[in-house]
């Protein structure tokens, strides 16, 4: 599993703190489109890895409360179009507890953690 510390700056919309929040990528994982493992499972395994717990211990809240992952899975990796898999490129991102999760249409899942920009 390759990891990178790819740092990205995302302007904070929240007007109550004018501080920019850095999002630091903490893990990434590939989910084989149409593979045996579901996207939901792959996302939870990735976050569990970051938290250092076993995937079945990661319970609260259910991912469903953030997003309907099987629906994303269907949108990206759903039935083939005219016999070919979809060629479109896109990314869906959502917040799960403290993490920002990005799912790319090629099956890459990236998990980011916020880090205060001005702690120095």
């Amino acid at each position: 599993m390759s990891k990178s510390s790819d740092e990205r700056k995302i302007a904070e919309d929240d007007p109550t703190n004018g501080v920019e929040t850095h999002q630091t990528q903490v893990t990434q994982r590939h989910c084989e489109p149409n593979g045996q493992r579901e996207l939901t499972t792959a996302i939870i395994y990735a976050i569990a890895e970051v938290e250092g717990v076993s995937p079945s211990e990661l319970k609260s809240p259910p991912l469903y409360e953030s997003v309907d992952v099987p629906a994303i899975e269907d949108a990206f990796f759903g039935p083939d179009v005219a016999g070919d898999s979809r060629q479109g490129v896109g990314t869906v991102e959502f917040q799960y507890t403290d993490y920002l999760v990005k799912v790319q249409s090629d099956g890459w899942i990236r998990v980011y953690e916020p880090t205060e920009a001005d702690l120095s």
Partner: peptide, 9 residues
């Protein structure tokens, strides 16, 4: 995991 986080809810 997929039952807990997606299908059951």
């Amino acid at each position: 995991v997929s039952l807990y986080h997606a299908h059951v809810p």
